[in-house]
Structure formats: C-alpha cells, structure tokens
Amino acid sequence: MAELQLRDIRKSFGTVDVIKGVDLTINSGEFMVFVGPSGCGKSTLLRLIAGLETITGGTLAFDGQIVNNLAPSKRGIAMVFQSYALYPHMTVYDNMAFGMQLAHAGKEQIRERVEKAAELLQISPYLKRLPKQLSGGQRQRVAIGRAIVRDPKVFLFDEPLSNLDAALRVATRLEIAKLHHSMNGATMIYVTHDQVEAMTLADRICVLRDGIIEQVGTPVELYEQPQSIFVAGFIGSPKMNFLTGRFAEPYGAKTIGVRSEHIQIGPGEGAWTGKVIHSENLGSDSYVYADMGADEPVVVREDGTKKHQPGEPISIRPIPGQVHRFDAEGRPLGRQ
C-alpha cells in the first residue's frame, strides 16, 4: 500500500538519454501498466523504481518520502523478472524463503508465509524441487510466490509472461489479476510490450515512447480518446486503420483513424469502394483486408464467418462518430 510520485525522472547511460523526464503519480493500490514498443525504456523506468539503477535526475517518492538513494531492499518492493531469476541451486521453498531467512525471521513464521503463498499459487507440491525441475509457468509462479512472501507495498513485474506459451500466458495473466484482488491494497506496476496484457490487467495504463510518457489513462480512455496517433495505433488489436489525403479531407483532418470494428460493409452515403485482398476467419468473427487505394489495406471486422473472395469488389463506411481525426502533428481533433 503505497503511493508513488515520479517527478521529472531522468536516466542516462553515459551520453544516451533513455528516460527523458517522466512525471507520474501511481495511486496506492493501483494496477499500473507501462506499455510501449521494445526499447522505449519501460524496463529502465521499472528498475529505477526498484532501485536497481541509479536515478540521473528528478525525484522518486514513496508515500511522499524521497527514496532516490534508498537500497532496493529498503523500499518495500518485490520484483518479478522476465527470466524468473530464481536461485538455481535452491529448492522452491528456499527460493521463496531466502530473503526472510537472511533477515533472521522465525522458522515458523517463514514456513507459514511460504506455505500460504505456495497455496495461493498452487505450487505447494513442488516446494522441494529445484527450479530446473519445473516448467516455465511453474517457475514464474515461484517467482511470483517469492515476491508475495516479501509482503511488499509495491509489486514490480517486468514482462513476466513473455517467456510463456500463449495458453499459459492467458492463464497466468488471470492469476496475476486475481492476485491483485486478493492482495488488497498492494500497488502493482507491470511492464509489457503487449497491449492486450495492458488492456486486460490495468487500472491505468502509461504508454511510453522513447523515454517519455505519451498518455496515461484507463484502458477505456486510451481506447476511446487516444491523445496521439501513436497511442491510437498502439492500443487496440488489430491496429487502427489510418487514412490520409482524399479519405481524411472530408473530415477536415490530416489523418483519420478508424478501428476495424467501427467499419461497416455495404454501400451507402460516403462509402469507400475497393477490392478484397484477403480475409481471415477466426470463427466468431472475421477480418477482411481491403485495398481502398490508400497506402495500406484497410482492415474491417465482420461478425460471423461470411466468406469474401480475393478480388471481390467491396464497399465500406466508417460508423459516424467513430472516426478519430488527427492534425499534421498527430494531435487529436476529436471524433466525428
């Protein structure tokens, strides 16, 4: 349970500026997700919060107390690494208990906490095993268990799911969401490059780009009111369709963006015409890729499993009120 204040946080490695002034308040008990493309500085920002890197400029405060120079172990945090970072020579139990053992906690107290965490994560049967005797998903749970045992005020996750296969990723994502509810009050900061993870887990998302914050908001805010073309393109799957030139002119914008689910198929007023390039059938719905004469094909989501042949002519129109308009700098002009 802690509120974090980041004030003009900067980080340089030598002459390379990686974090270029981040202002952000993370509320107590909040699930905050840092999302952005690879290399934008998410991990670095998280490691600054953890204390694993030194802060070059600005202040970092936990509950109003500046912690810039506080050792990681004194900040009341726990971190789950992408690579699990388990001690390979220790059993699952020892991995989880190690920190407490060295802090000279009572044996009973340690066992109680480890067993409780193990139960929560369903790893109780594996307590005597070594990490190498576990699957990737189990290892990641041990890593999460180790974090829980620390009983931290702030949980830090750095891409904890990216080494897992797709099915396991969804399952573990659910566990983390459950964990947040059950740990009532712990602040969680979660780094990912996967916007689906961000959308499904976050109370609020912080979109980073090149070491600066593009936008902070709830998933719905980012989805409905992106404050830049970058955020509009990054959030949502498939990617928002961007059109310029003759498509954007009628809307009085340099660029317009329409999500695939906000386009209807069929002729009508203001409809665009073109040809089907390809269609993907996902069972519940399908995605039609159409060449409208723009730089890139337009993706349209359609319910059901209607088949479109490549080359087939098609008319599509954006749903009124769902067209995002952007100026030449990529700033939003509102929807129309």
Partner: peptide, 12 residues
Amino acid sequence: DIYEAAAIDGVH
C-alpha cells in the same frame, strides 16, 4: 538478474 533478485531480497 539473480544478483538483482538478491539485492531486492536484501541479501548482504
């Protein structure tokens, strides 16, 4: 990262 985990665990 094992050393980083140890640093967070507060191991001397």
